[in-house]
């Protein structure tokens, strides 16, 4: 794929993203979709908003994908994260890997999504059914 980590304000199309990883030498394609869930820590969630420090998010996300390409025996990898308002069920983040064999593809995909969640400067604001809202992980309610 041309760009390994990108941000998108438009809906993601996982099938089209998977096609970018196609390679006849690869018997495995593992993709992860993170979707907007209707609850968090026991509270009903009605929608989300993602905000990113875009320049650094792309830099750090690209670093994560390159780390996966270096650490695992995989051929192609990519990740796309949404920004802006999202409805329940929408794909918020997509990570995909293709490899000759499945073990490395699963491990690399897991690595990418875990590291992206932990390191890339993107923030999530949840809007709850009771009208309240809050930034996730900031614990300042």
């Amino acid at each position: 794929m041309p760009a390994q980590f990108t941000l998108s304000r438009a809906r993601l199309d996982p099938a089209a993203l998977g096609c970018l990883l196609a390679d006849d030498s690869c018997g495995a394609l593992v993709a992860f979709e993170g979707r907007v869930r209707n609850h968090n820590e026991g509270r009903p969630v009605v929608r989300l908003e993602y905000e990113g420090y875009e320049a650094l998010a792309v830099k750090e996300g690209t670093k994560v994908v390159n780390e996966a390409l270096a650490r695992f025996r995989i051929e192609h990898a990519g990740c796309v994260h949404r920004l802006g308002p999202l409805a329940l069920g929408e794909v918020a983040v997509w990570a995909g890997v293709s490899a000759h064999h499945r073990d490395e593809a699963f491990a690399a995909c897991r690595y990418i999504i875990d590291e992206v969640k932990a390191r890339v400067p993107i923030w999530k604001k949840e809007f709850y059914a009771d009208g309240d809202s809050g930034w996730v992980n900031c614990n300042i309610r």
């Binding site: 993170g34 993602y50 990113g52 420090y53 320049a55 650094l56 830099k59 750090e60 994260h81 918020a92 983040v93 999504i113 992206v116 969640k117 932990a118 390191r119 890339v120 400067p121 993107i122 923030w123 999530k124 930034w135 996730v136 992980n137 900031c138």
Partner: peptide, 25 residues
Amino acid sequence: EEFRDWDSPVSDGDTIVFIPPVAGG
């Protein structure tokens, strides 16, 4: 646009961003 440690100096013309706990995904 680079993560830096808290003791780093700030210089004329710098752009500084404070990064709250991230929550992608």
